[in-house]
């Protein structure tokens, strides 16, 4: 995995942002920023040259699914991999996220191993597409 990636972690719960950040640190990523919902995240993405987004779904302001749609609709952002890490386990929501172009979907509660596997899988897919 390319460890010099610039990653944005979006979650309204500061505890979860910290946990995801710690896990990413353990996997060797150190350039990590945080946002507490899609509304805060979007301008950061538009101005920040981010390579990867890890986002929750259920957030006040702008939920993760809307952030994902904005990213996919933005010419400069649309290729950024977006990994959704959420407690939303409804099949229809996973399908909605897939249709909106999500790169990976992790259902909370999750383990560090799951996060590692999903990241590897996404990078693998993007490397093949490149």
């Amino acid at each position: 995995m390319k460890q010099n990636l610039k990653i944005l972690v979006v979650d309204d719960f500061s505890t979860m942002r910290r946990i995801v950040k710690n896990l990413l640190n353990e996997l060797g990523f150190s350039d990590i920023s945080e946002a507490d919902d899609g509304k805060t995240a979007l301008p950061m993405l538009q101005n920040g040259n981010f390579d990867f987004v890890v986002t929750d779904w259920n957030m006040p302001g702008m939920p993760g699914i809307e952030l994902l749609r904005h990213i996919r609709a933005d010419e400069r952002l649309k290729t950024i991999p977006v990994l959704m890490v959420t407690a939303e386990a409804q099949r229809e929501q996973i399908i909605e996220a897939a249709k909106a172009g999500v790169s990976g979907y992790i259902v909370k509660p999750f383990t560090g191993q799951t996060l590692k596997e999903k990241l590897e899988k996404i990078f693998e897919r993007y490397a093949q597409a490149a």
Binding site: W57, A87, A89, Q90, I106, V107
Partner: peptide
């Protein structure tokens, strides 16, 4: 949104775990 799955209160449309979601 439905939010986290609560044991005993699972909705019919929820996946059974990460493998199911994958």
């Amino acid at each position: 949104l439905e939010g986290p799955v609560v044991p005993g209160l699972e909705k019919a449309g929820a996946v059974s775990g990460q493998d199911d979601a994958d």
